[in-house]
Nucleic acid binder design. Structure first.
Lengths: 197, 197
DNA sequence: CCCCTATGTCAACGGCGATTGACTTAGCGG
DNA sequence: CCGCTAAGTCAATCGCCGTTGACATAGGGG
C-alpha cells in the first residue's frame, strides 16, 4: 500500500495550475466521499500533494470545493454503461458483491448519501439528482409513466446500494442465490414498461 | 414557531437528574439526526434547556452520547406497528407522502443514514442493523429463506425512504398513483413467501 | 432551621482547522 | 542572462468546540 501523498510529493508536479487544481478536486472527491464534509482541507491538500492555501486560490473555500466535487462526482453517469438489454440479473449480481469490488461507484454513492443527509447541501442535491440521476434513468427506461417508474427504479437501486454498503462484503452461498433471484425479479419488473398485474 | 430552547428555559425544570438526562438524550437524538455528528454539544444542551457540562456528567462525552442516542433511536421498532396483514399498499402510500408527515420515522432514519456513512460509527451500526432491523424483519416475514428475503425487503424499504427524503414532499396526481401501484406490487412480492415466478 | 449533597452554572483552557496575507521560487518572455 | 508574474509555501490569526474544574444553589433530612 503506497501512500498517495508521499507518491505525489516524491515527484513534485511541474508547476501547472490546471493540473494542481484537478489533483485537488480529485482528492476532494475521494476524501469527501470517505470522510464526509468533516475531513480537513489539510487531508485533501496533502493527498493532492498541494498546499492548503491553494484550495482557497483555486476554489475559494471549503464549501465551494465541496459543491464542485459533488457536481464532478455526478459527471460520470452510472447508467451510461448499461443499455436496456443489460439483464436485471447483472445488476442484481453486482449488488450481491462486495462494495469494495466497485470502489468508484461506492465512493460516488457515499458522497451522494452524505449530501442527502446534510441540510446545507440537500437543496443542491435535489437539483443534481433530478438532472443527473432521475433524468437519465427516465430516458433509459422510456415508455409510459417514465417519471414515476424512474423514481421507483432509482429508489430501489439506491436502497440496494445502501444495503451493500452496510453489509460491507459479498453475499455467499444460498443466501446469495436467493438474493440475486429476488432482486433480479424486482428489476425485471421495474424495467418492463407494462405495469404490475 | 416557538423556539424549544426558549420554551425549555422559560419554565426551568425542577431539579431532576433523570428528567434532565432524558431531555438531553431527546435533544441529541434530534440534533444528531438533523445535523449529524458535527452538531455542537452547545446546540444539544441548548435545545434541552441544560448546560454543556451536564453532558459530560451524565454521558461522559460526545462520543458516548452519540452511541446512546443511536441505540435509543432504534429502541422503538418501525415494524412493530405493522402486522403481516398490513397491505403493501399502506406502506407504498406512506412512502409516497411527505417525509414531514412522519417526523419521528424520518429523524430515526436520517440518524441511520448518517451513522452508515461515518467510518467511525459504521461498525456499531452493523450490529444494530442486524439486531434491530434485519432481525425483526426476518421474524416478521417468516417462511423460507427469511434471511435473504429480509435483506431484500430492508434494502428496498431503505431505498424508498431515501427517495422520500431527497424528494422532500408528497407526490401528486398521476405520478403518485403510478408510484403507489408499482411500489405496492414490489412489496407484495417481497412479503409473499413464494419466490418469483 | 441549617447543613449537606445532588444538581445546575460558569468561565477558562487547549486543540484544531479554515482562512489569510506575506513571502519564495520556478519558469518564461524579452 | 534578467526580471516579472504565476504558482506554490509558510506561519500567524481567529473562531469554534469539547472538555474540565471551580463555583452556586436548590431542597430535603436531621
Amino acid at each position: 500500500m503506497t501512500d498517495p501523498a508521499l507518491l505525489a510529493r516524491s515527484r513534485p508536479r511541474r508547476r501547472d495550475a490546471e493540473a494542481t487544481r484537478a489533483a485537488i478536486l480529485e482528492a476532494a472527491k475521494k476524501q469527501f466521499a470517505l470522510a464526509g464534509y468533516d475531513c480537513t482541507l489539510r487531508d485533501i491538500a496533502g493527498e493532492a500533494g498541494a498546499d492548503v492555501a491553494l484550495v482557497k486560490r483555486y476554489f475559494g473555500g471549503k464549501e465551494a470545493l465541496f459543491v464542485e466535487a459533488l457536481k464532478a462526482s455526478f459527471g460520470s453517469d452510472d447508467l451510461s454503461e448499461w443499455d436496456r438489454q443489460t439483464s436485471a440479473r447483472e445488476i442484481a449480481t453486482m449488488l450481491a458483491d462486495s462494495p469494495h469490488a466497485d470502489e468508484a461507484r461506492t465512493h460516488r454513492f457515499q458522497f451522494l448519501l452524505r449530501a442527502a443527509t446534510s441540510p446545507t447541501t440537500a437543496p443542491l442535491l435535489n437539483v443534481l439528482v433530478q438532472e443527473r440521476f432521475l433524468g437519465p434513468i427516465r430516458e433509459w427506461l422510456g415508455g409510459v409513466d417514465a417519471q414515476a417508474r424512474a423514481r421507483v427504479f432509482a429508489a430501489s437501486y439506491i436502497g440496494f446500494l445502501v444495503e451493500r454498503l452496510i453489509r460491507g462484503e459479498a453475499l455467499q452461498g444460498r443466501e446469495r442465490e436467493v438474493f440475486i433471484d429476488r432482486v433480479s425479479a424486482i428489476f425485471t419488473v421495474l424495467i418492463a414498461e407494462t405495469g404490475p398485474a
